[in-house]
Nucleic acid binder design. Structure first.
Length: 474
RNA sequence: GGCCUCAUGGUCAAGAGGUUAAGACGGUGCCCUCUCAAGGCACAAUCAGGGGUUCAAUUCCCCUUGGGGCUACCA
């Protein structure tokens, strides 16, 4: 059997769509699981949509998630060029061949005439008007400089069927298909044509793409057949949705890979989460490394129905990745999100927050109380479960202050044991003492870490200062 | 509108003609605990509706309903 070759063929829109990322991932996994090659091809045949720097975004997100392609524009390969605009002459050559084979024809129809074909329901179907043109007339009009397109010649009758590995047999009547444009008037191919030519020329054995092509695939098969080429195996993937009725969109920032990175997601977690949307490994694993995914990947685990992207679960998974990191790894990636905390011991902060955040951008809020002593209402000393209130704080806080002041070896363990003794001599539970102390220190009812852990990070001086402030506010 | 396609808890989903219908996120409760997380334990929650086929359908078939896609000189 021939070596498996899959491809990811995005158009350079300027951002990596999470749906596209999943398509890339599955194409990569399928190739790698079967010992094959994964190819990157850029589909930039629409000049209107060209975006500066868009290709670099594609390269970097693919590499950043570990989806290393064996061939592509920036890595080379034996089937190049890998950017469609660089392949322009190839398409015209094959289009002419297809015309000779009867699978396509020149069309000179004006925009106006095309529009006049629209029926009362707003539907339009090209009427093969230019198919009747003689070879001589076509030549004459082309030579006179008239603008033209090349259309696919789809049979008026009959039907086409093919096997999709996910969806099974797909059958479409030719009469439901239109004579689409293959070569635009600017000489560039449309997707409809370029994907066929390139997939064949690049030796792609398995075409893995979204379901938007499920019903137009018969058109492509018509061309494979006309050229006498072997059809690829088709694997169409269900859509990833934002909710029950909407797709993930760039506009709302719910589809852009880079936006997620910006929010403090790690690439591995995003890739892992996205892998789970539409695929369930046989062993039911949820948290997987890329190599585990390669190992486990199989088509039977792919579902047919669209799945909704759940950011809550994606966050959870990201949190799992953060928790699995060593403190050093965590600090390394968290640094950009720890602005304003330079004066503190980041090692200690990292220990406290690692299991309490899900995405790195949570750091800002969760550490706010370190940067400033937040003002608070003394009413929050009151906690029914702990049996604490402001009056208890009033008696405890000065004792705490005195003890803290005399501690020379200022650290969490010492603070904890020394202050526990204070609680004992005051006849209160240690937890009560720590509760009011923590409120006094942070102004918050809920904080990452307990009173002594917070104090340890704040340092002796700041701790005393904050205690003093809290006491005088009582 | 036409064509293609999909349908298990709130979400991701496993599953199979006969099961107590997995698991995960989220939710709730309990334990642990210097608050909160983390961790541990437990609980609630699903086969869209209607017809068939069958001894037996959530599973197979049909219809309805609902969702998605295509119907561009976008991909």
């Amino acid at each position: 059997m021939a070596k498996v070759r899959t491809r990811f063929a995005p158009s350079p829109t300027g951002f990596m769509h999470l749906g596209g990322l999943r398509t890339a991932l599955y194409a990569y996994l399928y190739a790698k699981h079967n010992g094959g090659d994964f190819v990157l091809r850029i589909e930039d045949t629409d000049k209107e949509r060209f975006v500066e720097g868009a290709m670099e975004v594609i390269y970097s997100s693919l590499k950043g998630t570990g989806l290393n392609y064996d061939e592509g524009p920036d890595v080379g390969g034996n089937y190049g060029p890998y950017i469609q605009s660089d392949r322009k002459p190839i398409y015209l050559e094959y289009a002419k061949k297809l015309i000779e084979l009867g699978g396509a024809y020149y069309c000179f129809c004006s925009k106006e005439r095309l529009e006049s074909l629209t029926d009362e329901n707003g539907n339009r179907k090209y009427d093969k008007h230019c198919l009747k043109l003689s070879k001589e007339e076509v030549e004459k009009r082309i030579n006179s400089g008239e603008s033209y397109v090349i259309r696919q010649n789809i049979p008026l009758e009959g039907k086409s069927s093919y096997e999709d590995l996910i969806y099974g047999t797909i059958e479409v009547d030719y009469s439901d298909l239109e004579d689409n444009i293959l070569i635009k008037s600017d000489g560039m191919p449309t997707y409809n044509f370029a994907n066929v030519i390139d997939d064949h020329l690049m030796g792609i054995t398995h075409v893995i793409r979204g379901t938007e092509y499920l019903s137009s695939t018969p058109k492509y098969n018509l061309m494979y057949d006309a050229f006498g080429w072997e059809r690829p195996v088709y694997i169409h993937l269900p859509t990833i949705m934002k909710d029950a009725t909407r797709k993930l969109s760039k506009r709302y920032g719910d589809a852009n890979f880079d936006d997620f990175i910006g929010k403090g997601y790690v690439p591995e977690a995003i890739l892992n989460y996205v892998a789970l949307l539409g695929w369930c490994p046989k062993n039911g694993a949820e948290k997987m490394t890329l190599s585990e995914m390669i190992e486990l990947f199989d088509l039977t685990g792919i579902s047919k129905s669209p799945s909704i992207f759940d950011e809550v679960k994606c966050k959870w998974l990201n949190g799992e990745y953060l928790k699995a990191m060593t403190d050093e790894e965590f600090i390394e990636i968290a640094k950009p999100f720890m602005t304003g905390l330079e004066n503190f011991n980041t090692q200690k902060i990292a220990k406290l927050i690692k299991s309490r955040i899900e995405i790195l951008s949570d750091i800002e809020n969760i550490t706010l109380f370190l940067k400033e002593h937040l003002s608070f209402d003394n009413a929050i000393y009151e906690n029914k479960k702990q049996k604490t209130d402001a009056s208890l704080a009033k008696v405890l806080l000065p004792k705490i202050y005195n003890k803290v002041e005399e501690i020379k070896d200022f650290n969490n363990d010492t603070l904890f044991s020394e202050l526990s003794l204070v609680a004992e001599s005051e006849g209160v539970k240690a937890r009560q003492l720590f509760y009011v102390m923590r409120i006094a220190l942070t102004g918050l009812e809920v904080t990452p870490g307990g009173a002594t852990e917070v104090a340890d990070i704040l340092g002796k001086e700041e701790t005393l200062k904050r205690l003093q402030t809290a006491i005088s506010n009582l």
